[in-house]
Design a protein around this nucleic acid. Structure first.
Lengths: 231, 231
DNA sequence: ACGCTTGGACTGACTGGTCAGTTCAAGTAT
DNA sequence: ATACTTGAACTGACCAGTCAGTCCAAGCGT
């Protein structure tokens, strides 16, 4: 009895997602569990993105967060649980951004294609802010036989569903071709943004977000062929 | 001295890439180093795709390949080297397929967009045949601080360059818009195919390759908007 | 304005287990 | 002979998770 390191007392919804370069200026001297968890998220997301889950040790995470190893286990019941909470938290943020972009655009009288374009931008902004999280997500998503598979599935659905919904609406209202396959197209769009953005960050970080967005817009709107619309 | 298990004697270019569901009916009784290496590639690619590199043990690989652990070290100098050769070998196959699709289409008088479409198909066929390899490649590509980072970089360039070349040719000959950003568009196209295909395999494996190809073609050719070309 | 208690947050040495890589004597096919 | 394979034993490093104990702010009685 007595101890129980489950530590779920605070509920959910801490501000920092893990990747946020926010400076630590919480309730100063006071030790708060919440800020410790944030520091751990931040440290973990970076390290796991770099090295993968299995090659990242709990001690490394603790060290980078500036706490002792025991503290990790005081705040999370296991390495896996820390990781799962990280996933849930990060995708929650992304989903909120995407949803907002979609809703705002439609409310302002934009087309569905406009909405998709705005969502692409929102995705890019997110990846720009939390590259490590994105990296880690992509690296883990299609693995099988992993402890957190269920979490990943749920979390993926949460994000993809928003794109699918916009596509669906577009088809229903005749703005998009009835030929399109909603789930596959959604996956392709997400992939387009994900991979282009990761490549941007990894191999040509000097480019601006605008450049990347423009390139993807062109693809989305099918204006790749014919500069002067030849043929 | 004496031993040196570097084992690079055979050169390169073994037939099986790792993921091939080919049945093992080589020169029966004959024990050849080459077929052992193939079995090891096959076993390793599957396991690493499922679990990741670090969580896959050499003994697991040996066991699934049906050989002893010592044999792994007779054929490869280390776990990492086995993995690196796997990467080189797999991407070599993919690059050959892509190149062939592009060359053939252009030779037969197709447009560059046709060529891209054929390359998408070639990509899908490859992923269909070697899903595990693709999975593993995506999972590792954007990691940093890994031993085989250089190998990955080389190998990535090899594949992406082919797509970039076709885009470049298209722009030069006026078939594609001069507005397009070749490297970014190439990355986006690759991502589109990669992610759509992995999603297909992971979440809707009942769909046919044709379905997936059709969905991606639609996107490539910008025929997503307006079924009856409204507006 | 001060000793005493409480309990939440944190610590880090320690344990038990796992795994890459080594070594080698013996086996098998050509 | 030569090339390849086996299997088992061993080493040494590394690591997830544990636990007895420290630290300290806040409450409490005096």
């Amino acid at each position: 009895m007595s101890r129980r390191t489950t530590a779920n007392g605070t509920g959910g919804t801490q501000p920092a997602a893990g990747g946020a370069p926010e400076d630590e200026s919480g309730p100063k001297g006071r030790r708060s569990r919440i800020s410790t968890r944030q520091k751990l998220f931040h440290a973990a997301v970076t390290l796991i993105a770099e090295q993968g889950f299995s090659s990242t040790t709990v001690e490394e995470i603790a060290e980078r967060a500036g706490v002792a190893k025991g503290t990790v286990y005081y705040n999370f019941s296991s390495k896996t649980e820390l990781f799962e909470e990280l996933l849930r938290h990060g995708v929650g943020l992304l989903a909120a951004d995407l949803q907002q972009a979609a809703t705002e655009t439609v409310a302002a009288g934009g087309t569905r294609v406009d909405a998709l374009d705005r969502m692409i931008r929102a995705g890019l902004v997110f990846i720009d802010r939390y590259p490590a999280f994105t990296q880690l997500y992509v690296a883990e998503l299609w693995r099988t036989n992993r402890a957190w598979n269920d979490t990943l599935l749920v979390v993926r659905k949460q994000a993809v569903a928003i794109v699918e919904e916009v596509l669906q609406d577009g088809v229903r209202e005749g703005e998009l071709s009835e030929e399109i396959d909603v789930p596959l197209t959604a996956a392709a769009l997400v992939g387009m943004v994900l991979v282009a953005a990761l490549d941007w960050k990894a191999f040509q970080p000097e480019r601006s977000l605008e450049d990347v967005h423009a390139a993807l817009s062109l693809l989305l709107q099918g204006r790749v062929g014919g500069g002067a619309r030849l043929r």
